[in-house]
Design a protein around this nucleic acid. Sequence first.
DNA 1: CAATTTATGGCAACCGGTTGACAAAAGCAC
DNA 2: GTGCTTTTGTCAACCGGTTGCCATAAATTG
Lengths: 353, 353
Amino acid sequence: MTEPKTPDAAPTAGPFKKHGRDGKSNATIYDIARVAGVNASTVSRALSKPGRVSPKTQKLIEDAAAELNYQVNPFARALPTGKTNTFGLIVADITNPTFFDIIRGAEATATDRDYTLVLAESAESPATELTAARRLMATVDGLILASPRMDDDNIRALAQDKPVVVINREVEGVPCVVPDVHKGISEAVRSLAAHGHQKVAYVAGPPESWMSEQRWDGVQAACDWSRLEAVRLESTKPTVDGGRQVARDVRASGATAVLTYNDLLAIGLMQELQAAGITVPDQISIVGFDDIFGADFTTPPLTTVRSPLGECGAGAATRLLDLLHGNGEPAGTLSVETELVLRGSSGRILSPL
Amino acid sequence: MTEPKTPDAAPTAGPFKKHGRDGKSNATIYDIARVAGVNASTVSRALSKPGRVSPKTQKLIEDAAAELNYQVNPFARALPTGKTNTFGLIVADITNPTFFDIIRGAEATATDRDYTLVLAESAESPATELTAARRLMATVDGLILASPRMDDDNIRALAQDKPVVVINREVEGVPCVVPDVHKGISEAVRSLAAHGHQKVAYVAGPPESWMSEQRWDGVQAACDWSRLEAVRLESTKPTVDGGRQVARDVRASGATAVLTYNDLLAIGLMQELQAAGITVPDQISIVGFDDIFGADFTTPPLTTVRSPLGECGAGAATRLLDLLHGNGEPAGTLSVETELVLRGSSGRILSPL
DNA sequence: CAATTTATGGCAACCGGTTGACAAAAGCAC
DNA sequence: GTGCTTTTGTCAACCGGTTGCCATAAATTG
């Protein structure tokens, strides 16, 4: 007999039963093939290539699959194809509310199109970001970089490997999704001009931030157009704390209205000014950027130039998926509109400083 | 000549060069084996099982790997082992700031221990949550459920398949990480009592929320102890908007202090009361839960019972990873401490309603 | 009805690792 | 040098799908 000599042939299950792996271990296409009386490759075809098998075998197989409660093993599928139905999103800081809506937009689009989102954070470090990107690259079909901190060449290098879409920055040769600051800033500055302001300060963000420069350019252009004076102030970091710290420069600048690189700076600035007894907007107007979560919690609620961040996330995901499916431009920038959200922190000067 | 007759014999690359697949396609253990002059399985062992091969072959292989810039193919590894070095995190609502710190805590722990975090959202729907969980289960080694909405049995069923850790809820037989509300609530209620309040309202969260009941229980117990009267009010949804809507019930209740299920409700409630001309905290005290991002943006800044959410996320991830590596209790609850964060929205009643 | 095209299913190789079984080599005592 | 144990590397089977190629059955055509 060819019976192999296995002494205690019994299923040597350990004393503790671990997870899974028991009887109800997942069904494979081979199980389906057996039940349906066809070859495994036919099952594979029935389940992926529509129309490749006859309707009646199709049904046979589908029934068997349903009965066995079959679901594909993503790894087995990924191994030969290289496709994982997954894409990565890297953000600089998960706790920065700017990214919340981006994440949500991307996540919604992913789920909607049957992809899974993998999230990573760079902790604001270019090196960490690159490491995370490389790591993710191995397991995803494509990558979205939101406000990346690494330099253009690294981004292009990644993009050569797999599709990459960048949010909040323009990189030559790589598809990007960027809010067009022009409209929102124009509205903001015109509103300030209409309320009689004559000197406007811009509090800049981090020097590496491409977007900060965009905004400064926009502010200058809009002030020019409205014949206002624009001055630029620097911040130490783009957070609430950074906003507090820049308050004295703001007061010293003589400006009656301030636009800040982002809402966090605006909120910190407002807190510090109010703590010093200054009334917003009666003595100074403050306008932020992004319209993040919580921008309307303040008193007065913050006037801000909204970037449609959810749209950015969704747009980037859509572009990425189009790219993955062979549609869509290989590069070029998708522009989304910004708009002024007029709340209570800006208005007419009633009692000058 | 055997030269095939290809008119424009050039490497028929399209006008655009596609991603990857070029020369630098990834090295495999077989390439390493060839370079190092050993068998592929030896390479595999050298790279995973430490000590299984001799130091000198080890070095040979490592050098070859470094030279070829090798990195494992996660799918090829996952196929036979079933291990992916990945775990999933499902949250009810990505835009709810309560989850931000949880996500961050879990992400940090994951990265730290060389795992990748996969994020999914349930949009507050038990059905979506279950679908997402099932989907993730196929590709991850374990799962963290933050404030799950599905019922206990479903959670236990999932936990039978792979390790699952639950945050913000206690499920019998499944490891959980839960903030212990007792200390924080006691502090809050004692503070209110000390300021002369006698009737306290609790604005509850969603009926499915286990945590909302915990908090209500805690409030009742603490009020009992301090001999205050406690009344319960219901909210429509646990958001800023829900907080606005419950304002009239709060006024009608006759309570001079309110604790809300979460900070969002507290913020909405405060906004609505202030809009009605009521002064906080002079006419009514408000205390939230969680200490989310933005809780201190309000005027007055919100007093709240802080849950260490980052710690919850990190703790859950740690437990999960321990479980995956065979350490740690299979079940039981890990409790983390809550504390009162006293800010401006609570205090003594100066001008009763 | 034979000839030919087309639709359909099967075979087997492959993706890139892991792992149990085993044999060759090395170490060691006597 | 012989016999025995321990290291170390190789062989080959496997994980669960995908896919090119081929044979056969069915459909179409003359």
